[in-house]
Design a protein around this nucleic acid. Sequence first.
RNA 1: GCCCUGGUAGUGUAGCGGCCUAUCAUGAAGCCCUGUCGAGGCUUCGACCCGGAUUCGAAUUCCGGCCAGGGCGCCA
Length: 598
Amino acid sequence: MIRTHTCGELRTSDIGAKVCLQGWVRFSRDHGGVAFIDLADRYGITQAVFDPEDLPEDADAGNLAETIRTFTRESAVSVRGIVRSRVAGTEDERNPTGSVEVLITSAELLGRSGIPPFEVGDQKEGVLPGEDIRMKYRYLDLRRTEMIRTLEFRSRFVHMARQYLESRSFLEIETPILGRSTPEGARDYIVPSRVHPGTFYALAQSPQLFKQMLMVGGLDRYYQVARCFRDEDSRKDRQPEFTQLDMEMSFVEEKDIQDTIEGMLAHVWEGIYGKKLQIPFRRISYKEAMWSYGSDKPDLRFGLRLNDVTDVAGKADYEIFRRIISKGGIILGIRIEAALAERIGRNEVDRYIDYAKKVGLGGLTWMRAKDGTLESNIVKYFSPEVIKSLISKLSVKDGDLLFLFAGPEKATQEGAGQVRLKLAEDLDLVPEGVFEFAWLVDCPLFETDPVSGRLTTFHHPFVKPRSPLDEKDVKGSSFDLVLNGTELGSGSLRINDPDLQRKVFSMLGMSEEKAEEDFGFFLEALGYGAPPHGGIALGIDRLIAMLTGKDTIRDTIAFPKNKRAQSLFDDSPAKVDDEKLEELQIMSIAIGDLEDLE
RNA sequence: GCCCUGGUAGUGUAGCGGCCUAUCAUGAAGCCCUGUCGAGGCUUCGACCCGGAUUCGAAUUCCGGCCAGGGCGCCA
């Protein structure tokens, strides 16, 4: 090792020491005689000074000046010199190394940098190059303090999580990434087999079946920082490949799994923030989440709860409401208290009506409370009794603004939930730096696809039902971890009875033959003493993004894919040589080629 | 597959029918400067995504494409 210190290390106690620093030239300031170089690395920035009048006898000032002239911005350089105190009054208090500087006695250019395509030095707030240019030159983007801190945070987080789990007898076990393509779920990334032409692996979408087989195998407590692959379109919080903190435990109940996650997060919290995390997390039932927040991942950082006013507002002599009620629909209300309501004028109300339509609602009905009654364009359809009961049901006070949403149950809940989120954002009700964890519990086992009418699972087909399958509205033993309106992960107890598992497959419309073909190995495994077991997987990318205040998980991943699933760093996906395809006995026909043939 | 937003010097932006030979900052190149720290001063360089249309005239309007991002679908 040639360098004696990092660029974040030197303090006044080092004054007089002969040191060697290596790093990147972040800024340099040439004053004609004396010149300053801000030398940066992951750990910090140290000021190096070229001072021709203060050099030791044996130093070659001319040569040194010449070398320093070659130090372009962002070049990797090495400097040797003596640590000295800064001239009184010129200390930089913002920088931990700001009381000292290194008087350069010799220097070397290690790796010259061309003119950077953007400025790496920390920018004014909010002024960043466009994401495409950051991605193209990701290695320069990564030099930014912000990126370094995020990746450091991520590394520490994962380390602390591992530390906790290892201390609780969990074993980190790697499961295959090359596996079998299964019919359900997300699209697979397909990998051709050379040895068995015409057959294919699929990249793992999750270690689900393998971790369950580990439980059958008696490993008892498993975890893995697992890369998962899904060939679906990206979002700001969805990437084609992403990382889950995956775990599974045997001989447990739901609470054991929740306790483990809470304990782990509390441990991480303590280690990273030095603060206690409030545990246990609150539990909120799926039903309550939908009725009160219009979402299965409610943001609990603010109020603006939804209220069911079907029985009250449904009595109004208002054609739209009557029609909806007669079709089994519901009416939800949001009360916006006077202090906030006065910021919403007539024009804003119209904008919310437009927004409501955009999120799948028919519209919204509004009224304002004044002098103990309600006013709006449609209030004439509401009898005094209806108005009175609305006021009392929602505890309306003068100045409050009411939004009412009517329509089919689920669509109305979700639409109203969207309006709730928009209101909170517009009215600045979302506090910064607050983390509201919650467990979403009592989820249904199945739901019916509104388009196809087919039965699908709410989570996945391996969730253990809480009651016999022939009963109505069976609940699953599953639970989602929700943080600030985002789903971080989903856990459950699993089915450990092969016959029950077969029955679930069959209820999902899978033929016995298909179940055997795709899951035969797994069903067989369940038949050899599968212990009761369960587990959970947390989306690490999302969690890190939330904890570091990033808008997209791309900012928590060193080399993410872009919106169209391309990697700009190695220009993938790309064509492969014909010989390679031949060896795999694969023919590639792009749609354009097909059209040419026709 | 669909919808929305955007694309102006290397970077970040202003301009939104004629004041555009296009603003400002930063950068780069050169010069000056011995205590700066996102140094400073002076000079110079450098851009309207592509193709069509409308118009006397288009960075600006319209149409088509390309690129980027956000969303819907999709994500058991």
